Simulated assay, not measured.
Amino acid sequence: MSDAVAAAPPSGTDHVCSAKACRAPARHAVVWNNPKLHKPERRKVWLACDDHEKSLADFVALRGFLIEVVPVEALTDADG
């Protein structure tokens, strides 16, 4: 599942699910950090539609990387 995250959304669209081959609107933000690669303050984000929220969150949680899952609207400039 290392290629589970899709490339950037097509131009002109906002908040598209990060799951591979999914182009659905994202409603959730899976916020995570891999401490072996990122500074503690770094907040990586995968966007998720309703169908992929659990699988993307579970993927990073299993590795101990999950910080939180929040609505897309709750993201701040510190996320990304």
Rank of each mutant, 00 (worst) to 15 (best):
M1H: 12
M1C: 05
M1S: 13
D3L: 13
D3F: 03
A4D: 14
A4M: 12
A4V: 12
A4Y: 11
A4G: 06
V5W: 01
A6Y: 12
A7H: 07
A7W: 03
A7R: 11
A7C: 00
P9A: 09
P9H: 04
P9M: 06
P10E: 07
S11I: 10
S11N: 13
G12S: 07
G12Q: 12
G12W: 10
G12F: 09
G12L: 05
G12R: 07
T13A: 12
H15L: 06
H15W: 13
V16L: 07
V16P: 05
V16C: 05
C17W: 01
C17K: 00
S18N: 02
S18K: 03
S18R: 01
S18V: 01
A19M: 05
A19R: 15
K20W: 07
K20Q: 13
K20L: 14
A21T: 09
A21Q: 08
C22Y: 08
C22P: 07
C22Q: 08
R23N: 15
A24E: 14
A24M: 11
P25T: 05
P25F: 02
P25S: 06
P25A: 00
A26K: 02
A26Y: 02
R27G: 13
H28M: 13
H28V: 08
H28E: 08
H28P: 03
A29L: 10
V30K: 02
V31C: 01
W32N: 00
W32H: 03
N34C: 02
P35M: 08
P35N: 12
K36H: 06
L37I: 04
H38W: 09
H38K: 01
K39D: 15
K39N: 09
P40D: 10
P40I: 05
P40F: 03
P40K: 09
P40W: 04
P40C: 07
E41L: 08
E41G: 01
R42C: 13
R42T: 14
R43F: 10
K44G: 06
W46Y: 11
W46V: 00
W46N: 00
A48M: 09
C49E: 04
C49S: 02
D50N: 14
H52N: 07
E53W: 03
K54F: 10
K54C: 09
L56I: 10
L56K: 14
L56G: 08
A57Q: 11
D58F: 00
D58M: 13
D58K: 04
F59L: 04
F59C: 03
V60D: 05
V60A: 03
V60M: 10
L62Y: 14
L62F: 15
L62H: 15
R63H: 04
G64V: 10
G64W: 00
G64A: 08
G64T: 04
F65W: 02
L66M: 11
L66A: 15
I67P: 13
I67E: 02
E68V: 04
E68F: 00
E68T: 15
V69A: 12
P71I: 00
P71A: 00
E73Q: 08
L75Y: 10
L75H: 14
T76G: 04
D77I: 06
D77F: 08
A78G: 09
A78R: 11
D79L: 06
D79Q: 09
D79W: 12
D79M: 01
